[in-house]
Design a protein around this nucleic acid. Structure first.
Lengths: 195, 195
DNA sequence: CGTCTACTGTAACGACCGTTGTGCATAACG
DNA sequence: CGTTATGCACAACGGTCGTTACAGTAGACG
């Protein structure tokens, strides 16, 4: 029998595939256990509840995604390329993680009631953290690139980024990466400081 | 008691609010009936099943959206403005239809298992029809605008369009419309035929 | 008036859900 | 060796789901 760590990992892998491929509500604990090759009891022993699995998957995804983004940023040469590194990060992350659907945060928020007033829901907090991570990084990168109106540029790039995720989620035939890169490059070029 | 047509309409309105606001799987038939102010039996009498309600909502949404888009296109003056009329259409359609989440097709596909091989699922067919409507119209509009590489331009605009929907779905604080318009205008300008 | 349509409430059905308890097997560690 | 940790199979619980049947009411139309 394999030791503890791989078991948790296998459960999370299976949850990633099923939750974001088929849907969270549609996926039962039995199906999740079968996909992970473990027992239902083991899942509860590790994560306590189905919502616990979801939170764990989202957290893992969030950290994995941010580190992938960081390496893509580090690989870029110029400040403007660093600003466009998001799209490289998605592409490599996606090819590395196989067939899992994008974006898991988008899928999650679709199945959840909108938070009413105060938000004690940790799942929504994670989604919000993902968004905050996006706008924060894009904003600071835009500022570092010395663009005119970096906030507006970051907001525009965020829309394009969301467009890539949405296109992937829809399963559109066209490849959104090239289109996104073209648009993003135009946006950055237009925001370049004259002189 | 109100006659037939308003009843169906009220059910579809309620389904639009609940399905795409809270999630399809989460919304039970009881909640749907309560929101519509009708009985559960009435829903089944009109639509046969929950999936029937979903299909009816999606079809209604599809036709409403395309007609709204058409009027926005007709209101535009130049071919390039016609190409950018999508964003006006979303904005007016959204403000007219209140708090309903965008995009319903995006939310739907998140909760559904991906079609395996052949696709006998009418819901997936509707989502695909929505996508086809988008790429077809954007493509012909780009061609009518006499741009260089109209197909690539249409693909880029589609990504930006998807980005708006995705941003709205996430409930991001920033207003995505202005950002999308800026990016789209840049894309169209860059594709303009020289001379 | 009678008939029909449209809709209502209540109750029930089978099925599946998330969750927990019990008991057992295996492997590592002292 | 015994202890502990880890995971398994089996079974069951309360609950909710989508769906349907049964019985009854208000208005439209002849």
């Amino acid at each position: 029998m394999v030791r503890g760590a791989p078991t948790q990992q296998r459960i999370l892998d299976a949850a990633e595939r099923l939750f974001f491929g088929d849907g969270i509500a549609v996926t039962g604990m039995d199906a999740l256990a079968a996909e992970a090759g473990v027992s239902v009891v083991t899942i509860y022993h590790h994560f306590g509840s189905k919502d616990g699995v979801l939170q764990a998957v989202l957290t893992r995804r969030l950290t994995a995604w941010t580190t992938a983004w960081d390496t893509a940023i580090a690989r870029a040469a110029t400040p403007e390329d660093r600003l466009l590194a998001v799209f490289d990060a998605i592409e490599t992350f996606r090819s590395a993680n196989g067939r899992t659907q994008w974006c898991c945060f988008l899928s999650t928020v679709s199945e959840r009631p909108s938070p009413t007033g105060a938000d004690p829901d940790p799942v929504h907090a994670l989604v919000r953290q993902d968004t905050a991570e996006l706008v924060g990084r894009l904003g600071s990168l835009a500022e570092a690139a010395d663009l005119t109106d970096p906030r507006a540029t970051a907001a525009t790039l965020l829309v394009i980024y969301n467009g890539v995720l949405s296109s992937l989620l829809r399963g559109e035939p066209e490849d959104p990466f090239q289109a996104a890169r073209v648009a993003a490059r135009l946006v950055v070029s237009a925001a370049r400081r004259p002189g």
